[in-house]
Design a protein around this nucleic acid. Structure first.
Lengths: 233, 233
DNA sequence: TTGTCCTATTGGCTAGGCCACTGAGCCGCC
DNA sequence: GGCGGCTCAGTGGCCTAGCCAATAGGACAA
């Protein structure tokens, strides 16, 4: 690439804190750190990076805003599990427990997702969905509630829709959904009913029938949600 | 809601820089500052806020990461044009222009929103919707494309749904929607067709018919989107 | 008119220090 | 044995004071 051709280059000047933030994230992935792991103490980290504590602090603020770390006074700096998302989650939870809102949002997203999945699923997607179904069945037969399989199923369906934006949105409310899910599956006999609903959705997706998939998903969300609705208020 | 029932609350502790950042944004909206306007110099701002420059600097880093301001060495701190709504927008746009994704997401959200609006709209909501419709009509009669009225309409409908979570999600993709909208309304005669679609949605909402509202909204989104789809190979 | 230099202004970053919070271990009292 | 309070080391929160570096704009020379 000729240097002269792109002459009017704005020449982005990076601040020190940005470089520091990058180094930290690089270090995190290099050492394969997971959520809950700790960064070194500020003083130590600052000296080993060759910057002042103030600058390091700026970098940590940036990482905190992005949602990579949580800085805890008197304790240390720990990695967050959700590298993104959840701005919404916090906002909602802070305001009040708005379970009905979550259900509405979930219904809006997942109904569409199911329809798209029916049109776009690959064989691999179907395999994932089946695997999730099996995991849920095994768990329930073993006396469990199939919580994990349930989550896996919905994630597999979401992926099968092949719509990055919808997937992103689902991930943003996934935590809120999880709360309603655990509660719902605690109802006696609910796991089996839920499993049947899942099977219906999976069949429609496998058959490539968008309307049926959407309807099945809608029914499922409504079923799973009534408990939460009862609890609310 | 009884206070004692939700007792074990984590009790979020705010850092000084967060409060500072909030005060700054508040000050921005109070004084109605626009993109390009300048914040006071750091030293001055710091003393008037009663914090050290280091802390103010942290707040500015946070605001910079969020995308509210741009801090320029030797020049000053200026406001950025995009006040909010970023994360997702950026992520999507950075990856590629994924117009179809936007349409899918919009369809998922707005169909549900329309249905909810039909059930929950107050008289005030209906007034807002009518006002938006009128604004759009006036603009078109005057030779305009009704872009602003269009946006107003969808916002009014979204508010009428009274679902904070869905509203939040809409606001997150609103910028992406705007791009498709401008394009669509540029088509000759499209504004009038679009207006008719809006009228149909408004009628269904006023009549309190969720299914009809959802169907009308779905049709509208599809209509508005075909142009974008054509462009997107 | 043009280009150079100077300078006031403004952000960038550091050093060093004190304060506040957290968690763990210890101790004494039921 | 268990519960509560105490102490203390470690860690982040924030400040003061200061120098360095970039920018914009005016003065001035060619």
């Amino acid at each position: 690439m000729s240097e002269s051709s792109r002459f009017p280059r704005p020449l982005h000047r990076t601040r020190l804190y940005e470089q520091v933030a990058e180094q930290i994230t690089a270090w995190i992935s290099e050492n394969d750190l997971k959520a809950g792991d700790r960064l070194p103490p500020e003083r130590q980290l600052a000296t080993s990076l060759g910057v002042s504590r103030a600058t390091l602090s700026q970098a940590l603020v940036a990482l905190e805003v992005i949602g990579v770390v949580a800085v805890r006074h008197g304790d240390g700096t720990v990695l967050t599990d959700k590298p993104r998302a959840e701005r919404i989650t916090d906002a909602i939870r802070a305001h009040a427990e708005r379970i009905p809102d979550v259900i509405e949002a979930r219904d809006a997203l997942e109904t569409k997702i199911a329809a798209l999945a029916a049109q776009r699923r690959t064989q691999e997607d179907l395999d994932h969905i089946q695997a999730a179904l099996k995991a849920m069945l095994d768990d329930i037969e073993g006396g469990g509630r199939g919580v994990q399989g349930d989550e896996l199923f919905h994630r597999a369906v979401t992926e099968a829709a092949h719509s990055p934006l919808l997937e992103q949105m689902m991930s943003e409310i996934s935590e809120l959904i999880r709360e309603t899910r655990i509660e719902s599956l605690s109802q006696p006999d609910r796991p089996r009913t839920s499993l049947a609903g899942h099977q219906k959705i999976a069949d429609a997706i496998a058959a490539g029938d968008p309307e049926a998939a959407a309807a099945a998903m809608h029914g499922h969300v409504m079923l799973v949600s009534d408990v939460a609705l009862l609890r609310d208020r």
